[in-house]
Simulated scan of single mutants.
Amino acid sequence: MKKKKGRTVLKKKNWRPYAYYGALVVFLLFFTWGFFEVVDALQENEVAAFDTKIIHEVQSWVNEGRTARMVFITDLASVKFLTVATGLIALFLIIRRWYGWALFFLLVNGIGGAFNGFLKEQFKRQRPDILPLIEQGGYSFPSGHSMGSFIFYGALSFMLFRLLKGKWKKVVAAVLAGSMILLVGLTRIYLGVHYPSDVIAGFSIGAAWLFFWIMLFHFSEYRVNRRLSRR
């Protein structure tokens, strides 16, 4: 409330932050629900027909040149690549003295990888044996590449969206990240190392994990700013 030329003017409340944080909560709940829906369908053996149909369709595209490209794309979400990329990006952020962003990026990816390993041990689903084009060890559900790509490229997109100046730069970053996530999921089915339900579950729990950490980041940011304003 403020006074202007002898009359009181009510300052209009900005509802945009509330809408934004509300959307984060909705996305977190939606993707968490989506993951458990896939889990229920898996436990009730309701995904076999769906998985088989999608695998046969995607693997009908197989040819030598396309397979080489698919292997290249899937390697951009491998544990080795994501570990090195996360470390280099965090180092760059530290050099720029963006310590909060560096910590966020390390934690969301590092703990996320461990979380995927935990989930795989809980479900112990064996990998498909329909025309595997590469060798892949470990359990199948949820897809680590799909979950890892959503966390890594999603977190990178969120970070660039906050740090970059210019609307189109932000849009391009988001579109490239989204395209990369979808392509990685497709490669896992094409290469015969995951069921489609593994990929959907990986995307769902990866998204839920990412939105949880984004909310945690904003909460930490708020606490730090509030502490600084009191000094």
Rank of each mutant, 00 (worst) to 15 (best):
W98A: 12
V47H: 03
I95G: 01
N116I: 13
I181M: 11
S146K: 03
E57P: 02
K169E: 05
R66F: 14
T52G: 11
W33K: 08
G185V: 04
G144K: 06
I205A: 00
I151R: 02
L29P: 13
N109C: 09
S149M: 05
F212D: 05
G192Y: 06
S229Y: 04
L163T: 13
F161I: 00
F105M: 03
F35D: 01
E46S: 09
R69M: 14
W15F: 09
G138E: 13
Y139I: 00
F72M: 13
I95C: 03
R125T: 09
Q122V: 15
L107W: 08
E64S: 11
L119E: 12
Y139C: 01
W61L: 15
R223G: 05
S140G: 05
L133M: 10
I54W: 07
T32E: 08
T67N: 12
Y99H: 15
G202I: 04
A48N: 09
Q126L: 12
K165H: 14
G192I: 04
I130H: 14
K80F: 08
T32C: 09
T187S: 14
L164I: 09
F50R: 07
D51S: 05
G185D: 00
I95K: 08
T86K: 02
L228K: 00
V175L: 15
L228M: 07
V184C: 07
N225R: 13
I205V: 12
I200M: 07
R66C: 00
I54Y: 02
S60H: 14
S197M: 04
V171L: 08
V79Q: 10
S146E: 07
R125I: 10
L82I: 15
I94S: 02
A48E: 15
K53I: 03
F115S: 07
D40V: 04
I134Y: 11
F150K: 01
V199S: 02
V84Y: 07
E37V: 10
W209A: 03
G166A: 06
S157V: 11
S140A: 14
A155V: 13
K4L: 14
M1S: 12
A19F: 14
L156Q: 02
L163I: 08
M1D: 14
P132N: 12
L28N: 13
E135A: 09
T8P: 00
A23F: 14
I151N: 01
I94L: 15
Q43C: 00
F118R: 01
M147L: 11
R66K: 08
I55H: 06
G148E: 10
R96M: 09
T8C: 01
G138H: 12
A207Q: 07
W33T: 09
D75T: 11
M159I: 08
P196I: 04
R226N: 02
V175I: 15
F203G: 00
G202D: 05
E221S: 12
A177D: 01
W213Q: 05
Q136S: 14
F35G: 02
W168G: 01
L10D: 13
F27C: 15
I189W: 06
Y222W: 14
W213D: 09
Y153S: 05
I189C: 07
L91P: 06
N109K: 04
Y99P: 04
V47Y: 03
R66T: 10
V38S: 02
I54A: 01
I189Q: 05
F150S: 02
L182N: 01
G178I: 06
S78D: 08
A208H: 09
